[in-house]
Design a protein around this nucleic acid. Sequence first.
DNA 1: TCTAGTCGTAACCATATTTGTTACAACACT
DNA 2: AGTGTTGTAACAAATATGGTTACGACTAGA
Lengths: 143, 143
Amino acid sequence: MSANSRLTIAAHTLTWIGLYQRRGHEVATSEQIATSVNTNPVVIRRLLGELRKAGLVDSRRGAGAGWMLSRDLASITLLDVYQAIESGPVFALHRAAPDPGCVVGHGIGPVMTAVYDDVEAALRGELAKTTLEDVLRDVLKVA
Amino acid sequence: MSANSRLTIAAHTLTWIGLYQRRGHEVATSEQIATSVNTNPVVIRRLLGELRKAGLVDSRRGAGAGWMLSRDLASITLLDVYQAIESGPVFALHRAAPDPGCVVGHGIGPVMTAVYDDVEAALRGELAKTTLEDVLRDVLKVA
DNA sequence: TCTAGTCGTAACCATATTTGTTACAACACT
DNA sequence: AGTGTTGTAACAAATATGGTTACGACTAGA
C-alpha cells in the first residue's frame, strides 16, 4: 500500500505548535517546524494550509508572521486531523467497471462498498479516541 | 490516499471462482476471471499468485489448466485476503527521521506507532467479520 | 510424439500520488 | 524602505498500481 505519512507529519506539526505556544511563544514558523520534522518548509506550509481550511490552525503574514492553533490541543482528535488532510477512501472499487452481465461483476460493487463503509467507520472511531493533548502527553513521557 | 483496488479485485476473483466451482466446473482460467473483472488476465494471474502463496487457491498447469479454491468460501475472511495481498501499513511514519534533538521529533515516532497499531487492529477486526461466503450471498441478493 | 491451451513471469509503459525543491509575488511589522 | 514569512506555482524524483506484450514451461488429449 502507498504508505502515507501525511497524518504523521500533520500530528507532529500541530503538536509542535501546541508545545511551542505553551512555552510562551505566539506563533511558529514553517521553517522551525520543518527543522523538527526534517523536511522542507514548503511541505509544512502546504499541509498547514489544509489544516487551516479545516479550522485547526490560523496564520499571520508579514514580518513576525507564523502559525498558531485555532483550537486547544485537547479539543483536536486525530480524526479531525485525518479528515482535514485525507481525501479519498482507504480501499477503492474497480478502476474500470466490471462486467455488468456477470452476476459477480454486477453485484460485487455494492457489497464491497458496504464492507468498506464499516471498515472506514472503525478506522475513524479508533482515530477519534486520541487527542493531540494525549499525543503531547505521551511524547513528553517518552522523552 | 492512493486508492487501492487490490482487495476488491481479489475478493471479486475468489468469489467468482467459488461460484463457478459451485456450478460444477473444476477450474477457472485467468481469462474468464479477467472478463468479469474487466482487466487483463496477467493482472489476475499476478494477484492469484499471491493468493496461492497464502494458501487460498491452487493452480493446475498444462491443457485444461486453471485455478481452484484451496479452502471453502465460508472459511475465508476478507482479512485472510487482505493479509495475502497487502504488504505495508495503512499509515507511515516520517520518510526521513525527524530531529532527535527536539522533544517532539524524538518522541512522536513511538506514540504514533502505538496509535497506528490500534487502528490497524480495528481495521483487521472489521475485515475479519466478513467471509467470502457472506460476500457471495450478498452478491446474489443484489442480482 | 505432437498440438493446443494455460500458467508463470519478466519487461516495459502509463498514470497517479507523495514528497522535495526552487522561485517569487504578496504582505505586514518595525 | 527593509526584512522576514506566508502563499502558491512549477517542476523533478521516487514509489505504487495497473495495463500490455511476449515467451518459456507445462500438461492433457489427439
